[in-house]
Write a protein that binds this DNA or RNA. Structure first.
Length: 295
DNA sequence: CTAGGGATCAGCT
DNA sequence: GCTGATCCCTAGC
């Protein structure tokens, strides 16, 4: 599998996102290499996307998003979690794809150790027993199931903000079998959806979750060839890509810019946006909360 | 379901 | 410089 071309990322994020499924993200550290096959991603459209960190312009935190494509934008949130995005399109467009989940295909032991290690400085007053002392109870599918878990499994933090994932000598890289040269990406099959994605996320009618995108023939591998599953410890990816609303995003929730492999166990649990509580109208009509993997 | 924890940023002094 | 609301989440009840 070849390192990915920068041209692969020099496209709108909504085109890059589904193409990233099945590609491999790997991080090499002194402790070893952990690689995941990406199974769930979300596209963000930059300054005109109200859900994007870039919506309010360039800041120190999000500066990388305004740079050239093919670099990692890593941010810290909720006081304890990192999430990683890959920058798309061109300079100053600030579009990116959030990597939401993956299946570990290499370095599983290391990934498990990182995911089960107790946080340093745990509260001494409530020394809860480590939940998984040996880590064996952590299912493989849960190693990188979710954007923050993925970062934890790969040991991604802000020191990797700006890392060039197209460089072969970078500690953080993306490999993709089918998207090596830009040709595949550019002349690739267009989205099977009839409509073009709206540039600024504008209401474009409802798009039910789990709408098939391509590779709709079961058993017939899509463009990424059955997701290039090297056999071994990894469960079979379906190769069928579906899309739905982005997770936890209040703005432009109707835009189906989340993409994942149908039926893939490492895809994160869907959570719709949670509106502020106790607020006006109380109707409770507020946020629809999904649960489980979307259909 | 909730608490947790840190950074960010708009808005203010 | 400070304050408070917010944040694309996770683990543990």
């Amino acid at each position: 599998m070849a390192p990915i071309s920068r041209d692969f990322f020099a496209r709108p994020s909504v085109e890059v996102a589904p193409d990233l499924l099945g590609c491999v993200l790997e991080h090499e550290t002194g402790a070893g290499l952990v690689a995941v096959e990406l199974t769930e991603v979300e596209a963000y459209a930059g300054q005109h996307d109200p859900a994007s960190h870039a919506y309010r312009g360039k800041t120190q935190r999000n500066a990388v998003m305004f740079g050239p494509p093919g670099h990692a934008y890593v941010y810290f949130t909720y006081g304890m979690h990192f999430c990683v995005n890959l920058v798309c399109l061109g300079e100053n467009t600030a579009s990116a794809v959030l990597l939401r989940a993956g299946a570990v295909i290499e370095g599983e032991d290391l990934a498990r150790a990182r995911r089960t290690r107790r946080k340093p400085g745990g509260d001494p007053k409530t020394p809860k027993a480590p939940r998984t002392a040996d880590g064996v109870s952590l299912a493989p599918r849960d190693l990188a199931r979710g954007p923050a878990r993925l970062c934890q499994a790969l040991d991604i933090d802000r020191s990797l903000d700006g890392a060039d994932v197209c460089a072969a000598d970078s500690p953080l890289r993306v490999r993709c079998e089918r998207a090596g040269p830009s040709t595949t990406a550019r002349s690739g099959t267009p989205l099977a959806r009839g409509d073009d994605p709206p540039d600024p996320p504008a209401p474009a009618g409802t798009h039910p979750p789990g709408t098939p995108l391509r590779g709709t023939t079961p058993g017939a591998p899509g463009p990424r060839g059955g997701a290039a599953l090297r056999e071994g410890s990894t469960p079979a990816r379906s190769g069928r890509i579906v899309s739905g609303p982005r997770v936890g995003v209040s703005a432009a929730a109707e835009v189906p810019w989340r993409f994942w492999f149908e039926g893939e166990p490492s895809v994160s649990v869907y959570r719709a946006h949670v509106p502020p509580r106790g607020g006006r109208g109380a109707g409770g009509a507020g946020g629809v909360r999904g649960s489980g993997t979307p259909p």
